[in-house]
Amino acid sequence: WGKEGHYVVCKITQEYLSEDALFAVKQLLPDSAHGDLAALCSWPDEIRFHYHWSSALHYADTPDFLCNYQYCRDCHDSYGRKHRCLTGAIHNYTMQLKLAYADASSKFNYNLTEALLFLSHFVGDVHQPLHVGFTGDLGGNSITVRWYRRKTNLHHVWDNMIIESALKMFYGSDLSTMIQAIQQNITDIWSNDVSIWEHCAHNYTACPDWYASESVSLACKFAYRNATPGSTLKDEYFLSRLPIVEKRLAQGGVRLT
C-alpha cells in the first residue's frame, strides 16, 4: 500500500491491541512516534533503497496467470534465494518478536523496533492483492492504464489511487473519516467474520501464506480482470473494487492486532 493504506491498517490495529500488547508496542516505538504505531508504518518503504536487502520483502512473486499461492514455489527473491519474500519476512519478524518476548533471557540481539515496524508494514502489504501478483508484470507495475484521465500503472492504482479517489468521493478527503467507516463495518457487517480473520490453523501466531493465498485470488478476480494494458479504469472499476480494498485494509488491521 501507499502511505494512506499503511496508516489505515495500523490505526485500525491500535484500536484493538490488548493492554499487554499496547504496552510492549509503546516500549518499542521511538519517542518520535509519540506512542502512535501508525506514524511509522510506512517507514519500511522509506528505507527500502537504503536497506537494499529489504526491497524483495515487500512482495511475493506468483508465477504468471496462476491464481494460488505456494510458499515453497513463490517465496524467493529475484536471485532465487528462498524465504526472501513478503510471507517469509512476516514469519521471520513474528519469530524474532516472539522469541524475545517468550524468553526474556534470549541471547538473540534482534532490533525489535525494526522487527515491529517491518512486521506491521508487511502484514499490511500482504493484504494488497497485487503485492502477491504475477512475476511477469511485476505485480501490475508494468501494466500501464489510465485512472480516469491520469496515466498510471495497475499496481499504483491498488496501492494509492482507489484509496485517494474514495477519500475525495466519499470521505471529504479526511482519512480519519474513512478509518471510522471501516471500523464501523468491522463492528457491524463484518463482526461475524472477525473471529475467522483472526484465527490461524494449528493456533499459529501468524499465517501469512493464507493471507497471500487470499490476495492472489483477489488479484485474479478483481485487480487484473478488465484492466488490460492501455485500458481506462473509471467508475465501474473503482466502485466495484473499493469494497475489496476496504475489506483488505480491515483484515490487515484486525490480523496485525
Binding site: A21, E198, Y204
Partner: peptide, 16 residues
C-alpha cells in the same frame, strides 16, 4: 491478533 498473540505467551509460530 498477531501482536496480541506475540505479546502474550501461549501459541506456536507458523513454520515457513
Amino acid at each position: 491478533a498477531i501482536l496480541n498473540r506475540i505479546f502474550t505467551s501461549k501459541t506456536g509460530i507458523a513454520q515457513a
